[in-house]
Design a protein around this nucleic acid. Sequence first.
DNA 1: CGCGGGCCCTGTGAGC
DNA 2: TGCTCACAGGGCCCGC
Length: 269
Amino acid sequence: MPELPEVQTVVNTLSPRVTGATIRAVTLHRIDIVTPIGTDLVKHLTNRVISQIERRGKRIVFTLDDGNRFFIHLGMTGRLTVESLDSEILKHTHLIFDLHDGSQVRFRDPRRFGGVFWLGSDDPAGTMGPEPMTLRADELFAKLKKTKRFVKTALLDQKLVAGLGNIYVDEALHAAGIYPKLRADRLNRQQVEKLTVAIKTVLKRALKHRGSTLRDFVDADGLKGAFQKLHRVYDREGKPCLTCGGSIKRIVLGGRSTHFCPKCQKRSK
DNA sequence: CGCGGGCCCTGTGAGC
DNA sequence: TGCTCACAGGGCCCGC
């Protein structure tokens, strides 16, 4: 579900509702969604003020008034929403913050690939790579030079660039006319230049449409994204390429679905 | 030590 | 209608 545009959309909709809010109570229904194991989240958060909320990679980073931080990762099916007290608490709701104004922030994640990660004073970025929106082509070129993996697989590595996922890597490679199975270290300067621009263009357009909802994604207000209607390759196997009319192919790389147009994204050069 | 594969989970939709 | 199976936006951990 959540890649950079979706996570940013959650932050954008959550921020005005929680920035400056006091967490009056914390209800943790499953302690195993919290990392490190044994963290007393209730103690850390109760009666704290949320002074800031921001995105780093695919992480939603909260800064508290005591300077401590934690982040929530949405995994595949995570939702972070603001709801009223009387709205039904759905199955798989693992964490609830009661705010001073009577609203609740709820974290719900059926597959539990997401979770809550206590940082304290640790760096929210961890070992993550640079943000794609401010990425420089020479920087990406240097990183891709260091690996023999397929360019598709390399771009999914959050240590290389932080925030891209399966949808936007496929979309960006298509926009740049690059074959997904091309070895990362074989891309030339012009290709990386084009790829850098394509990544930014695709992410910017996706953000403008509040991300992609294939199934689960909603923002903090429960609103779905609309960018899935504008995908040019992702989840379009067998359909005509919107650029050249060729048939979109689906292959599996590193266990992930990969969609591309064999005519626009040629194997050679 | 880089890399590929397995695995962690639940829900859904296609196919029989 | 009901069952089985493949698959899903992510990422950690384990051998090789």
